[in-house]
Simulated assay, not measured.
Amino acid sequence: MALILVTGASSGLGHDTAKALVDDGHEVVVHARTRARLTDAGDDARWKGALLGDLSDLDDIHDVARQASAYGRFDAVIHNAGVMRSPEAVTVNTIAPYVLTVLMDKPGRLIYLSSSMHRTGSTDLGRLTDGTASYDDSKLWVTALALALASRWEGTSSHAVDPGWVPTRMGGPGAPDDLTAGHRTQTWLATHPDVTPHTGGYWHHRQTQEPNPAAQDERFQTRLVQALENRTGVLLG
């Protein structure tokens, strides 16, 4: 049995991921923006606990990290929360995963939700602070963050996942990919005893793919971490 945190778990892929993990016998702490969003989902009793906070607000992100500390070290953290609209996209999709990662106890496994749209993201990190970052940018940056962490923290594996274009509220009803397949890779990476590669994978439906080359570029990874440190005041260390 593993202790796992899933952010953005009130609906869509996050909710499906959390439910699947509980069904497999794991203890799951979920995150949602408000308590009402979890109550609306109708299955509060499933969860070991809940973290509440708006991940588009830096103060709330810090508070969510403080709430997480009450549970000690997680075996895995799935950074699922995401939005498409700007300017919130960069905060929710990139800054929140970064700050939570640094402020929380290092888990055994880190899984970050990417997107195939990261391939058209920009390496212009000025967009991180000037309000012009797009969804594509935010997903390139969180992918680069995931791969940067893969080689930085001994004892913690780190992966990025493209769940596909699936019919969630964000993906829309006409999305062509399979909804169930959209969360299976995350649950597998969080719990399977023998994931290969052990760390640093970019995954789609339990198969590794080559990401945008910038995500694997150590120089860009270093610039990204420095930009995130400057933007948030939170040092990776």
Rank of each mutant, 00 (worst) to 15 (best):
M1K: 03
M1L: 03
A2P: 01
A2N: 11
L3C: 02
V6M: 05
A9E: 13
A9Y: 15
T17A: 10
K19M: 01
A20E: 12
L21V: 01
V28A: 01
V30D: 07
H31R: 05
R33F: 00
A36P: 04
A36V: 11
R37T: 09
A41I: 07
D54V: 06
S56H: 02
L58G: 06
I61H: 11
I61Y: 14
I61L: 04
V64Y: 06
A65T: 13
Q67M: 10
S69M: 10
Y71L: 10
R73Y: 13
D75Y: 01
D75H: 02
A76Q: 06
A81K: 06
M84I: 14
M84W: 12
S86T: 12
S86L: 02
P87S: 04
P87F: 12
E88H: 12
V90T: 15
T91A: 13
V92T: 06
A96T: 14
Y98W: 13
T101S: 10
K106T: 11
P107T: 07
L110V: 01
I111T: 06
S115R: 08
S116A: 15
M117W: 15
R119K: 11
R119W: 14
T120V: 14
S122A: 03
D124Q: 07
L125W: 04
R127H: 09
L128D: 00
L128Q: 00
T129M: 11
T132G: 06
T132Q: 03
S134I: 11
S134A: 15
D137K: 05
L140N: 12
L140W: 13
V142T: 09
V142R: 05
A144K: 05
L149H: 08
L149C: 01
A150I: 02
S151L: 04
G155V: 04
A160I: 02
A160G: 12
D162Y: 13
D162V: 11
M170W: 07
M170L: 10
M170H: 14
P173S: 04
D177V: 08
D177Q: 15
L179I: 15
T180W: 04
G182K: 11
H183D: 00
R184L: 13
T185S: 04
Q186T: 03
T187N: 01
L189A: 08
D194Y: 02
D194H: 11
H198Q: 06
G200E: 02
G200R: 00
G201D: 00
W203K: 07
H205Q: 06
Q207I: 08
Q207L: 08
Q207K: 15
T208C: 05
P213K: 03
P213N: 02
P213I: 02
E218T: 14
R223F: 00
L224M: 05
V225L: 14
V225Q: 05
A227C: 15
A227F: 15
L228K: 08
L228F: 13
N230D: 12
T232N: 04
G233I: 03
V234I: 10
L235G: 07
G237L: 04
